[in-house]
Write a protein that binds this DNA or RNA. Sequence first.
RNA 1: GCCGGGGUGGUGGAACGGCAGACACGCACGCCUCAAGAGCGUGUAAUCGCAUAGAUUGUGAGAGUUCGAAUCUCUCCCCCGGCACCA
Length: 892
Amino acid sequence: MAAKKVTVSYNPAVIEPKWQSVWQKQKLFSPDLGKSKKPYYNLMMFPYPSAEGLHAGNMYAFTGADIWGRYQRMKGNDVFEPMGLDGFGIHSENYAIKINEHPTEVSKRTEERFYSQLQATGNAFDWTRTLETYDPDYYRWTQWIFIQMFKHGLAYRQKAKVNWCPSCLTVLADEQVIAGECERCKSVVEQRDLEQWFFKITDYADRLLDNLEKINWTEKIKIAQRNWIGRSYGAEVKFKVASREAKQLTTDTLTCFTTRPDTLYGTTFMVIAPDSPLVVTLTTEAQKEVVSDYIKQQQTISAPNLGSQGETLRSQNQDKSGVFTGAYVVNPANNKDIPVYISNYVVSGYGSEAVMGVPAHDQRDFEMASKYNLDIVSTIKSEKETDQDLQEAYVGEGTIINSGDWNGLSWPRDREKILSSLEENGWGKKMTTYHLRDWLISRQRYWGPPIPMIYCQACADRGDSWFITDEAERMVEGNGIKNLKFEISNSAASAAGWYPAPEDQLPVELPYIENYRPTGTGKSPLAQDEKFINVKCPGCGSDARRETDVSDTFLDSAWYFLRYPSVTKNLKFKISNLKLKSKSKEENVESLPWDEEITKHWLPVDMYIGGAEHSVLHLMYSRFVTMALHDWGHLDFEEPFTRFFAHGLLICEGTKMSKSKGNVIVPDAYIKKYGADTLRLYLMFLSPFNQGGDFRDTGMEGMFKFLNRVWRLVQKSISNSQFSISNEQERLIHKAIKRVTEDLEGLRYNRAISGIMEYVNSLEELNSKFKIQNSKVENGISKEAGETLLKLFAPFAPHMTEELWNELGHKESIHFAPWPEYDPVLVIDEVVSISVQVNGKYRGVVVVSADEANNQKVVEERARSFEFVAKYLTSEPKKVIFVPGKTINFVV
RNA sequence: GCCGGGGUGGUGGAACGGCAGACACGCACGCCUCAAGAGCGUGUAAUCGCAUAGAUUGUGAGAGUUCGAAUCUCUCCCCCGGCACCA
C-alpha cells in the first residue's frame, strides 16, 4: 500500500508561528471568565522588562508554569493564564538611565519586544488580558490601594532612619538591603533621617505567620517568611532607675524585652544601643564625654562610604565593646543595682533597644561581662562548672537556681508560670515582638505611581487632616471594622495636614519630566514640576502641595493578580467600578479595581509559580495587601495564592546569569534555530524544575533530534492508521500514561520527559520487531499509541503536537483533548523479576509470572534451581527472607 | 553562628529500604552514503580479565540500625541558597 501522504520533515519555523496565530485568532486560551465551570487560575510572576529583552531565566520559569497550565486544561479545567509587565519602578528606570533614554520611550520599546518574544515561546497566555503596571488605568488602582491604606490607618508618615542608597539616590526597604548593600547596585547603604510613608504591615504579623499553616506552599518559602516575621514570645521587664542618679536623668525607667524571663535574677547589667534615644536620657553628666566619644567611634566604624573596607570594619565591629553610661537601674527581682552600658551589639529598631545582660546564659552578654569584669550569676543549673570558671554561657534548658521563689522550676517547661509570676510581682508583662518592620513605601524617584497625597500647611497648622472629615466619620461608624476607630485616631495624630487625592480624580498622573534622573537631595524629580505640585486642599480649599515621592515598585506587584481577570482589552473602562469616570453622582457608587463577580469566581489564585528570590518581598507584600483588602470587605478570601511552587534558578555555565557577567542568554536565537518546542523541552529536561539548571549549549541538538523522532513516528502511524493495537502496545500506553501523569502532578518535568522518551523508545523497538515479522507493513504503531503519545507530549511541545494532531484529522485543538487515563490492570507487568540475594548481596534475578511473584515457595524453588544461586548455597541457609514481588534473600 | 537544599560515571541527572547509574548529553566503533550531514545500530562507572565468562570495588568521609542502605540514624567535611549581634 502506498503512503497517502508525502512525509513532511519537521519544520518548527513554519508550524510554530502558524499555530500561534491560529490560537490567538480563535482566542483559544482566552476563556470566557464569566461562564467558566471549572475555573483554574494559573499564574506566574510577571517579568520586569528592564533589560535587552526576555532572558532564558524568564523562559525557564514561564515554560514550567505553562506546562502546568496546559496539563490542568487537559484535565478539564478552564485555565486562565495571564501575562503582563512589571514595568514601573526602579529597575526599569535604572535601565533607562543607563542607556540614556526616557523611561516612557524605553517602556514603549520593551513592551513591544517582550510581548513579541513571549508570543514566540508558545505559552498559552490570554493575550486579551495583559496589563502593565505603568499604565494609568492600572496605577490609578495602585494609588487607590494607597489611599485605602491611609484611610484605614495603615499608612502613616514618620521621620525615620532609613536606608539610603547613595548610587540609586533613593531610600530602600529593609528587604532591599543585602548585607549592608543595595540589592540592585551593590553600593554600601547609608542611614538617613527622612520623613517617609510607611504601611503598617506589622499589624498583620501574627496573621501573616499563622496563615502559613493553611496554604500549600513550597516549604522553604514558608520557612523564609517565618524567619523574616521573626516572632518571639517573652516578657517586657521594667527596670527602675536607681535612686542615686534619678535626679539628674530624664527618665525613671528602662524597659527591655527578653525571651528568657527565667534568667531575670541573673541579670547583672543592662545594655542599650548606641544610636538609641535612650543614650541621651540615661547618660550621667560625668560620663557624657566618654559616651560621646564612644558614639562617634561607632559611627565611624559603621560609616557607609568606606566601600569594600566597610565590610572589614563591620566584621571587626563584631567584637563586643561598650561604655558605661554612669546610670544604674534596679533589677526588680532581687533589688540589686546594676550598671547600664552602651554597646554595639544591641541593634536599634528592635524591641525597646535595650537588653538585659545575663552573662551566664547568653554568649554575647558573657563576652561583654568578661571584657568589663561584670558579675556572672548562674540561674540555670548547668551541672559541671561553677560561675567562676565558666568558659562560655550556658544557653540550654535546666532547673532554675539562685532565683528566689522560682528555684526548682524548670526551663522551658515552666515558662508560663514564670511569666505569670513576673506579672503578679509587677516586674513586667508578657509580650511578643517581631523582626518584621513596617513597609517603607516612599521612593524619591520618578518612574512610579505618584503617592496620591496632598499636604495643606493651613490644615496642618490647625491640626486638621482627612481624619476629621465627614467621610472619615462615616467610615468609622459604617464599617464596623474592629479597631478602625483606634487606628484612625492614632493615625490622625501624625497625619496633620494630609489628605488623600479625591478618589474620583484618580489617577494622579505621572507628569512627563524631561530630566527624570534622581536628584540626590532626598526629593523626587517630581518636586521640580510646579504644575504637578500645586493643588487646592481637598479639606479647606487653600493652596496645598502634592506629595512628590512615588511608591515602591513592590506595591505595583502586590495586587496585579487581582486585576488580571478583570482586564478587558479595548473596553478598559467598561467594568462596573469604573463608573467613577461618569459625572453622574448616582452611578458613583462602589469603586473597586476589579469586577466583583469575576473575582469571586476566579480568585484566589490556584497555582502561583515563581522564583524563590521573592520569598520575603513580593510574596509577603501580596499577602498583606490581600489581607487588608479582605478586612475592608472587598475580598472574600485573605490568602491570595492557595498554592505556590518555587522553581529553581537557571544558571549559565555554573554561575548566575547577570548583565555584568555578560552571560545572559536570550532565547531568540535558539528559538530561531530549533523552535520553541525544542527549547522548552531542553530547559525542562535539564534538571528538576524546583532545583534549577545549568544552561549549556550542548544538549539542545539532542532534544531537537528527539522531536524529529516523534515527528517521524507519528507521521508514519498516520499513513498506517488501520493498524490495530496489540496487547503489548496497550501495556506500553498505560504505563506511559501512569508515569507521565504522576510526574506532572509533582512538577517533575525532567522525569516526565524521560518517561515519554522511554515510551517512544519502546514503541520503536516494538515496531522494529514487528517489521521483521511482517515486512509488508511499514509501521506498527497503532492510532491509540500515536495519539496517546501526542497527548502526553502536548504540554511540553505544544506546537508540534498540535500540528500532528491536526494531521491525524482532529478538528479540535489537542490542548483541549482530555488527558488520558490509565487502566490499573494494564500497568501491572505480566512477568516480574525478583532479585535474588545471598547474604544481602545481589546475585541475579528470577523471572516469574505476576501471580507467582507473591508465592515464596515458587520463587524460592526457582531461585535455588539456578547455578548462580546454588553455588553459594553450600549448606542449607539459616534464614530465607522473602519480600513478595521484590526480592528473596538467602542468609547462609 | 542559625535555617533550608545538596554532594551519585567524562557531563546533566534516575532510583529515595530490595538488580545503583533510568533517560539524555558527550565519546568510540560500525551500518548507510561517491562524500558530508541526517538517520540507524552497538558499546560506554572503575579495576582484574581474551571474554558480550566471571569476580572485586564503588553513591563526600566515618560509624550505626537492618537479612539487605545512595535511600533511615548519628558525627564530620565540602558546595549552593536564605537569615544573621533580634536579646
